[in-house]
Computed example of a mutant assay.
Amino acid sequence: MNRIEKKLQSLQEKKEKAFITYITAGLPDMDHCAKLIRAQEEAGLDILELGIPFSDPAADGPVIQDASYRSILKGTNLRKCFELVDGVRKDGCELPIVFMMYYNTVLHYGLEAFAEKCAKVGVDGLIIPDLPLEEQQPLKDALAKQNATILIQLVAPVSGKRIPEILKDAKGFVYCVSSMGVTGQGASFHKEVISYLKSVKEQAQIPVMMGFGIRTAADVAPMKDIIDGAIVGSHFINLMEENQYDLDVAKAYIQTFKTELK
């Protein structure tokens, strides 16, 4: 059981919802990014999605695309992202960390070497939106040898009959995409989002998280009896940009969201 699974088990025992944020690695710079990770842990964040910048982030909207582009211009790459995680781990950080990334980056690094490095530095999970179920086995095999990092499965409103197959061996949590299209659509959820989430919840053996377009806990209030947690990405990046990555602003947002989520 890794950090993600331990954290979610603890939350379920306390009957609490999970709160997950997304930040882009390397913004505003690597040193401050490390401080932001620690600040979020101190504020009570449950799981962190760390975006690995990529030149063509197909699942992401304008906000995360722009953040990814600016981070790349600053020289951020996978090696530096590993160093970032390694550094906060050595500093005592136990916050579950998930890499949100694209498969080209993994392939270029090499599957075996990538899995080994994830295990070594303390990457707990992976979200790879452009890696379909049918193509996952080589990476799953490499990860299984290390028994440290888990591959998070995504489902969407159009997954339909594929949901049981996707969830069959799913680990950690299920990432439920709340709308069609890309990230950052501002609570513009799919018209059948409630029935879709109920369907996933009925079939899942692990916690169900909802992401894409969430800004406040009020956005997910109609789903509070279905989902096990919420993920905020684009809105949190905007908040950080507007406030010069102020750590106190980050902490206040997380604490407020967590309180309202209860």
Rank of each mutant, 00 (worst) to 15 (best):
L111K: 08
Q137G: 00
E112P: 01
I128R: 03
G125L: 02
E134F: 01
P132G: 11
P132K: 07
L131M: 11
P138N: 00
P129G: 08
K117Y: 00
C118H: 10
L131W: 07
C118P: 11
V123W: 04
K120E: 14
L111F: 11
G122Q: 07
L111Y: 15
E112C: 06
E135F: 02
L131E: 05
G122H: 12
K120H: 13
A113E: 15
P132F: 10
E116S: 12
D130W: 05
L131N: 10
L111Q: 10
V121K: 06
I128M: 08
L111H: 09
V123N: 03
E134Q: 14
E112Q: 15
L126A: 11
G125Q: 07
I127A: 12
Q136G: 06
A113V: 09
P138L: 01
V121I: 12
L139E: 09
Y109V: 03
L111W: 04
L131R: 02
L139V: 08
Q136E: 15
L111N: 07
A113M: 07
D124L: 06
E116L: 04
F114M: 11
I127F: 07
I127T: 02
V123H: 07
L133Q: 05
G122F: 04
E116F: 00
E116R: 14
D130Q: 12
G125K: 13
G110C: 09
L139C: 12
L131T: 03
K120A: 12
Y109T: 15
L133W: 09
Q137K: 15
V123A: 04
E112T: 15
K117F: 02
E112F: 00
A113Y: 01
E135L: 08
Y109N: 01
P138H: 05
L126T: 00
K140Y: 08
L139F: 08
K117R: 13
K120Q: 14
V121H: 01
E112S: 15
A113S: 15
G125A: 13
E116Q: 14
P129R: 01
A115E: 13
A115V: 12
E116M: 09
K140A: 00
D130L: 10
Q137P: 00
G110R: 09
L126C: 12
C118S: 05
I127R: 01
Y109Q: 14
D130V: 04
Q137E: 15
G110H: 06
L139K: 11
E116N: 08
P138T: 08
A119K: 11
G122M: 01
G122P: 06
E134A: 14
Q136K: 11
D124K: 10
P132L: 08
A119R: 03
Q136F: 05
A119P: 02
G125S: 02
K117M: 14
P129M: 08
Y109C: 14
A119N: 07
G110P: 05
D130S: 05
P132A: 13
L133F: 14
K140L: 15
G125T: 05
A113T: 14
I128N: 06
I128C: 08
A119W: 01
A115M: 03
K140I: 04
P132D: 08
E134T: 13
F114W: 10
I128P: 03
I128K: 00
E134M: 12
P138A: 02
A113H: 13
L133K: 12
E112W: 02
L139A: 10
E116W: 00
I128L: 10
Q137C: 00
